[in-house]
Computed example of a mutant assay.
Amino acid sequence: MKTITTTEALEEFCTRAASYPYVTVDTEFLRERTYYSKLCLVQLAVPGEDDDEDAVLVDPLVEGLSLEPMYRLFRNEDVVKVFHAARQDLEIFFVEADVFPTPLFDTQVAAMVCGFGDQVGYETLVRKIARAQLDKSSRFTDWSRRPLTPAQKHYAIGDVTHLRVIYEWLAAELEKSGRAKWVREELRVLTNPATYTIEPGEAWKRLKTRTNSGRFLAVARELARFREGYAQARNIPRNRVMKDDALLELASTKPRSIQELGRSRLLLREARKGEIAEGILAAVTAGTELPNDQVPKPQNGGKEKLQVNPALADLLRVLLKARCEQEKVAQKLIASAADLDALAAGKRDVAALKGWRAEVFGEDAVRLCDGKLALAAKGQHVKVIEV
């Protein structure tokens, strides 16, 4: 396999790749010590069997190497860019260069549509489709260290060479089943900038709280806003500023001075002084003094108020399982437990009632809720009966 270390070599490979119908892509990165992922390696492969020529490793850590030839290839609408579980890879390219590889194909999403179960792993697809085995011994190595070992290179290149076989098999299956449009619908969210943009003011919504107190949530929101902005500006993990349990403790105790802040049981020592301490105290003050009509509402408040018919929710789960077994598609891709509860409570603004999901499950789910369908057991299968 070839390792590309110059812009000229990358330009040559990407120019050649532009003549093929698709290119497979993967990355290796680190995120333990930074807020944004640090790109350490890019793997690319075009159709072919000579991996010394048709698959390459691109080293973005080499001084002077520009990835612009690769980004031009990503923008080329004539070449499909194939990934497995693309979300983290796409976030890197969006943050680094404000680019999304299009058109995009994600083999994990496609495999779920083709009946391989929920969030099927790459290793499973390699074994079942490519009939090969992966050496995963280098999976958790430090990809920022140089030189890369032969074992690391062998592991990395396998993530794009087997992907060619998997892509071609899945693409053929989707063509036969007419489900390619299902995958395209699913992939729209992956190329939406909002998927990767974390607004500090919205960061509090990821916190797991056990209280419905609006004032507590107001302080927690301001603390989360400060933490997210501070971490983004300095490219450090948010937990290096303060961990979730410390944030929630501070939202409860509401310290108003350095002395009170020092009594925290969970706050990191570095956060008890300097800029972080000042930011925490300012956030507590902002949340505490927020007018009552501006305090946030609990995120789970709407769910708790749903009047769910438990028997109907159970029937919807049976219908979902039956439809997914019949269509050989992963249940998780169709509807979540929350979707089913919402349907059983009379809600009709759920994702399961839109697009291709409506064809597979949603339309029948509404008819079941309206008493126009019934379910019956027939052997080991569930039969849907018109009423």
Score class of each variant (00 low, 15 high):
Lys128Ala: 12
Gly121His: 06
Asn192Val: 06
Glu49Arg: 02
Glu260Arg: 10
Phe116Ser: 09
Phe94Thr: 07
Arg127Thr: 14
Thr7Trp: 08
Ser252Arg: 15
Ile334Val: 12
Arg206Cys: 06
Leu353Gly: 13
Gly362Cys: 05
Gly371Asp: 07
His162Tyr: 14
Arg367Thr: 08
Val42Met: 05
Glu278Leu: 09
Val25Ala: 01
Glu270Cys: 08
Arg238Glu: 01
Val219Gln: 02
Tyr122Phe: 13
Gly302Met: 05
Arg164Pro: 01
Ala55Gln: 02
Ile4Lys: 00
Leu268Pro: 11
Leu353Tyr: 04
Val387Trp: 14
Asp349Phe: 02
Glu175Ile: 04
Val120Tyr: 05
Arg234Asp: 10
Ser213Val: 00
Ala358Asp: 04
Thr211Phe: 10
Phe29Asp: 06
Lys243Val: 11
Glu68Ile: 11
Gly362Phe: 06
Asp364Ala: 13
Val219Asp: 02
Ile198Gly: 09
Glu28Gln: 07
Gly274Asn: 07
Ala286Val: 06
Thr102Ile: 14
Gln294Thr: 11
Arg256Leu: 15
Lys181Leu: 13
Arg367Val: 09
Tyr71Phe: 15
Ile334Arg: 01
Cys14Thr: 08
Asp349Thr: 09
Gln232Val: 15
Lys2Ala: 11
Arg16Lys: 10
Thr3His: 04
Ile157Asp: 07
Pro150Val: 02
Glu199Lys: 12
Ile280Asp: 04
Leu261Ala: 02
Lys153Met: 14
Glu49Ser: 12
Ala111Asp: 06
Arg139Ser: 12
Leu104Pro: 00
Leu368Trp: 08
Arg256Gln: 13
Ser144Asp: 07
Thr195Met: 10
Asp78Glu: 15
Gln152His: 03
Leu134Cys: 09
Glu325Ala: 10
Ser177Asp: 05
Ala194Glu: 13
Phe226Lys: 07
Asp159Met: 06
Val126Gly: 04
Lys208Phe: 11
Asn76Val: 01
Lys297Pro: 08
Glu8Phe: 15
Gly201Phe: 11
Lys305Val: 01
Leu134Ser: 11
Val350Ile: 06
Asp89Arg: 05
Ala220Cys: 12
Ser257Cys: 09
Gly214Thr: 11
Gln88Thr: 14
Leu170Ile: 06
Ser138Pro: 03
Arg317Gly: 15
Leu290Ser: 11
Ala18Tyr: 00
Ile129Tyr: 01
Ile334Leu: 05
Tyr20Leu: 12
Gln232Glu: 10
Ala338Tyr: 05
Gly229Asp: 06
Phe116His: 15
Pro103His: 03
Ala203Val: 03
Asp245Tyr: 07
Ala18Pro: 04
Gly355Arg: 07
Ala203Asn: 06
Lys347Pro: 00
Ile236Ser: 15
Gln307Glu: 12
Asp98Trp: 10
Ile276Ser: 04
Leu261Asp: 00
Ile129His: 01
Leu65Met: 03
Arg348Phe: 11
Ala344Arg: 00
Arg16His: 06
Asn239Gln: 15
Ala55Asp: 01
Thr195His: 15
Phe74Gln: 05
Gly115Thr: 02
Tyr20Lys: 11
Glu222Phe: 04
Asp106Gly: 02
Gln299Asp: 13
Val99Gln: 13
Lys81Gly: 13
Asp142Phe: 04
Leu134Arg: 03
Met242Ser: 00
Asn212Ala: 13
Ala313Thr: 08
Leu134Tyr: 08
Ala344Gln: 02
Leu248Ser: 05
Val241Ser: 05
Lys347Met: 14
Ala322Gly: 07
Lys305Trp: 08
Val350Met: 02
Thr34Pro: 00
Asp314Glu: 15
His162Gly: 06
Ile198Asp: 11
Arg31Ile: 06
Arg269Gln: 12
Val46Trp: 09
Gly158Cys: 03
Arg215Asp: 01
Thr7Tyr: 05
